[in-house]
């Protein structure tokens, strides 16, 4: 019986390690999911950081229609519109579009734009070189701004995708980002050059 007690302890410890490992794995699923999304395009998530454009081939034989949708979530009072609703682009060429925001509220608000692409697969081929969605955007009461977004479509975009939709949802994140309140919005009142 003495030996079996040691055996029990050894096996139990191993199992407890598995349990702790699986608990950790539960949390590891969060970054794994992002990797999974990057590979498969589930949910149409786009990259959260700027892509670097390499001057490569511009495929003039194809044109892709990109459609922009702007929404504000509940609790968000900003006016938010896309200055360009639809644009036809050639894969490989960089385009810049501009979005108008205005804060009509009497307090300063910090916003975060969340992008989503449909069909999800297209998200893998959408490269943004500059986007207001990479950072939180602050506007003082009554301020307005034109925020730019530059992007190009990877020429490897599958042949059957001829158009896709990019949606931005604007969230009020003032509560969780209070330290940014005094930051001046870099796009304040400057119509972006190249906007259509």
């Amino acid at each position: 019986m003495a030996t079996s007690s040691a055996q029990h302890r050894k096996l139990t410890l191993r199992l407890v390690i598995i349990v702790i490992g699986m608990f950790g794995f539960g949390f590891a699923l969060v970054p794994l999911y992002d990797v999974f999304c990057d590979i498969t395009g589930i949910n149409g998530k786009t990259q959260n950081s700027a892509a670097v454009w390499q001057s490569g081939q511009i495929d003039n034989s194809r044109s892709i229609t990109v459609e922009f949708i702007t929404r504000t979530n509940s609790g968000m009072s900003w006016e938010f519109t896309a200055q360009t609703q639809r644009i036809s682009v050639h894969p490989g060429e960089v385009n810049t579009v501009s979005f108008y925001v205005r804060n009509p509220a009497r307090n300063n608000i910090i916003a975060q734009a969340i992008p989503s692409v449909s069909p999800g697969q297209a998200a893998l081929y959408l490269n943004k070189t500059e986007c207001f969605c990479f950072n939180q955007q602050a506007l003082q009461a009554g301020q307005e701004a034109w925020m730019p977004m530059s992007f190009y479509v990877d020429p490897d975009l599958p042949e059957d995708i001829t158009y896709f939709t990019l949606q931005y949802t604007l969230y009020d994140v003032t509560d969780r980002a209070a330290d940014l309140t005094d930051n001046e919005n870099p796009f304040l009142r400057q119509p972006v050059s190249g906007s259509r």
């Binding site: 199992l15 699986m22 794995f25 539960g26 699923l29």
Partner: peptide, 13 residues
């Protein structure tokens, strides 16, 4: 033991 900890992780989140 493989999946109950994952559930624990999910409820914790």
């Amino acid at each position: 033991i493989a999946v109950m900890p994952v559930l624990a992780g999910a409820v914790t989140m």
